[in-house]
Design a protein around this nucleic acid. Structure first.
Length: 183
DNA sequence: CCCTGATTCGC
DNA sequence: GCGAATCAGG
């Protein structure tokens, strides 16, 4: 695959929309995210609106290392125990407290489809226990914490979120449930 | 471990 | 110009 005008245009458009390189690569097909990033740079539209997220992170010659490694104290970093934080989320997971959520009218309706889907998911959930929770397992509680019938979904979480896709859709209400259906 | 973009450099 | 490999950070 080569960078035809069309493809470059798509690249520009998506990059402009804030799409990630991998997403763009996936959309274009035939290229990896690396290719996309490389192209982005060559096109000179590297940073999006001069974000200051990574101002000047000190360049480091990765390969061009002609000089000897020199002394390496080989300082060992003490491994710190990873504490798994578990929040016993109530039946109704609260709304994320990041964005200023206005009055929140009555958009608390979850599409029947989504609910049905969740039910399905919960059937096939891995039913992992507290100890099995990791940062990448859905932490959606299922069952009654006060009884034996309690476990966590355990499916793969959706990037960053604490829950799997199905549960994220229930926990995090899109501002506009209706309209704007997925493509 | 999953992801993100940034950079280098052989091709 | 291209992009895999690599780096660096989340």
């Amino acid at each position: 695959m080569s960078w035809t005008d069309e493809r470059v245009e798509t690249l520009k458009k998506m990059w402009g929309e804030g799409q990630s390189a991998s997403q763009i690569a996936k959309e274009l097909g035939g290229v990896t995210r690396n290719a996309v990033i490389g192209k982005v740079h060559r096109l000179g539209l590297s940073n999006r609106a001069g974000a200051s997220s990574t101002p000047a992170p000190e360049r480091k010659a990765a390969k061009a290392d002609t000089s000897a490694p020199a002394a390496k104290p080989a300082a060992k970093v003490a491994p710190q125990d990873k504490v798994i934080e578990v929040t016993v989320t109530p039946r109704k997971p609260i709304v994320p407290a990041g964005q200023p959520l206005p009055p929140q009218p009555s958009a608390n309706e979850i599409s029947p489809e989504t609910l049905a889907n969740v039910r399905e998911v919960e059937k096939t959930a891995k039913r992992i226990g507290l100890m099995d929770l990791t940062e990448r397992t859905c932490k959606w509680p299922i069952g009654d914490p006060a009884t034996e019938d309690f476990w966590f979904c355990g499916l793969s979480v959706q990037q960053g979120k604490p829950y799997c896709e199905a549960h994220v859709s229930v926990a995090f209400q899109p501002m506009s449930s209706r309209r704007d259906r997925r493509r």
